[in-house]
Amino acid sequence: MRYIATILLFALKYIALKLAFVPLAVILWLCWITAANYRKLSLAKSDVELDKIDQMLAGIKDKLPMDAKIGFRTNIDPGRRGVLYFKSTLILAPRILENNDRDTILLIEDPHLQPVLDKNYECLERGGNQELNYCLMRRRN
């Protein structure tokens, strides 16, 4: 305890002697707003779509080996397709998500749009959130 008190006293003396009050106040303010911002960014309320898709696809990450190559499909328009493809690629990396069909396909669907139906594939895993559904499909033998 005595050692801690000595160290604290030394630190206080150093601050009092070496630092002027205004710069110290600026530094403390800077530290506080930086810490507050990083805390805010780590809260669930700061989650963006990428975090929501990440939570949605959490279940299938364990089922796919790290060097898996899977295809990607969606029922959403081409502009939005790119967004979902890149976000899914980031989430599933280092697995390779191809922007076309393979034996295993990740299908992401907007539940309000026409669903993708393909009799050649069977759904292995299904899930979703309020905005999107997903299905991990395997080609039928």
């Binding site: 070496k18 630092l19 002027a20 205004v22 710069p23 110290l24 600026v26 530094i27």
Partner: peptide, 8 residues
């Protein structure tokens, strides 16, 4: 060692 008005 000294963070004074010069660096303010």
């Amino acid at each position: 060692k000294k963070i004074g008005s010069k660096n303010l």
